[in-house]
């Protein structure tokens, strides 16, 4: 057996290597924070003065090259989009999670469903946008509308809601279900009275996550919802067919058009500040919920 070399020189070399390596790791960890702070700081520095003015947030845009108006309609259409997409996606997503966790037998169909969800999660939003354009806008004759955008976005957030709801349902202790069933109630009563209330905070996390995704989405909406700037967004259209609201811009789409035109770029920062505030708020909510949730079921 060879003798292990252990002279002092080797040790100091290893120590130096150790210091350099750990230093690099330490540096890369904090670099991420620095990048984030810099990006947010940069957007806030240029956007906060405009964003904090009451005028910008609550006046309708008036279009034109310099667009002296605000973002009232864009905020409204963002809210409509969130509501529209979640009305469709939340029940379907939560039901899917319930099926997969509480009902699904181990068979080919279940695997197919799992496969579809995983793949939906990996599809880039531009492909969802193309689908929305081909299916809702052209084939179903919705034209560029908030509704076409909302339905496409609903499919996009479906995997987010399903996955988080699945995790939430899985973390409900099996003993709770068994106690309920032992009382003689049936499966649906157990799910609606015992499982869903316990899993609610986790499901809510998924809803908040998907709100974040909807707010940040732009590619889908450019392709499926159009980009009309001065139209007052509405849930109902003024003309036939009435169930189709008009083309509209959400905040993220508005930011895109503002930023790519030189005359309105300064305003894009203010819209960016609004978006970042919403994301910060959502993240705070998610963290608060999961903190409480963890305590409740003593996870981790």
């Amino acid at each position: 057996m060879e003798a292990v070399k252990f002279d002092k020189g080797n040790v100091s070399k290893i120590q130096r290597e150790e210091q350099i390596a750990l230093g690099t790791l330490w540096f890369s960890g904090w670099l991420i924070v620095a990048v984030l702070v810099f990006i947010i700081g940069y957007i806030f520095y240029f956007g906060l003065p405009t964003a904090l003015s009451f005028n910008y947030l609550f006046t309708p845009p008036n279009g034109g090259r310099h667009d002296t108006g605000g973002i009232l309609y864009q905020s409204l259409s963002t809210i409509y989009l969130i509501i529209g997409a979640l009305i469709v996606a939340a029940p379907i997503g939560i039901s899917t999670a319930i099926y997969l966790i509480e009902y699904a037998p181990q068979n080919l169909v279940t695997r197919l469903i799992g496969f579809a969800i995983e793949n939906l999660a990996g599809i880039p939003s531009i492909i969802y946008g193309l689908f929305g354009l081909a299916f809702f806008v052209i084939f179903l004759k919705f034209e560029y509308s908030l509704l076409a955008g909302a339905l496409t976005v609903a499919i996009m957030v479906l995997p987010v809601i399903i996955r988080t709801s699945e995790v939430a349902l899985l973390s409900v202790p099996q003993s709770l279900r068994q106690s309920s069933l032992a009382l003689g109630v049936n499966k649906w009563q157990t799910i609606s009275n015992v499982v869903l209330p316990s899993a609610f905070p986790g499901i809510l996390t998924g809803i908040l996550l998907s709100i974040g995704r909807i707010i940040g989405e732009s590619a889908i909406l450019i392709l499926a919802a159009g980009g009309s700037i001065t139209a007052m967004p509405s849930l109902m259209s003024g003309e036939y067919p009435y169930f189709l609201p008009d083309s509209a811009r959400t905040l993220a789409v508005h930011l895109y058009y503002q930023a790519t035109s030189y005359d309105t770029r300064a305003k894009a920062f203010a819209t960016g500040v609004v978006l970042i505030f919403i994301v910060l708020f959502l993240n705070f909510g998610i963290n608060q919920i999961s903190k409480k949730y963890r305590k409740k079921f003593a996870i981790r």
């Binding site: 991420i32 990006i39 940040g216 993220a252 789409v253 895109y256 770029r265 978006l275 970042i276 993240n283």
Partner: peptide
Amino acid sequence: IIRPAVQLLAGIPSVIFGLFGLSF
């Protein structure tokens, strides 16, 4: 500190990254 920062970075809309790239 770092984990929420990573989480926040993941949540920032892509148009904001675009704006940052375009203006900085």
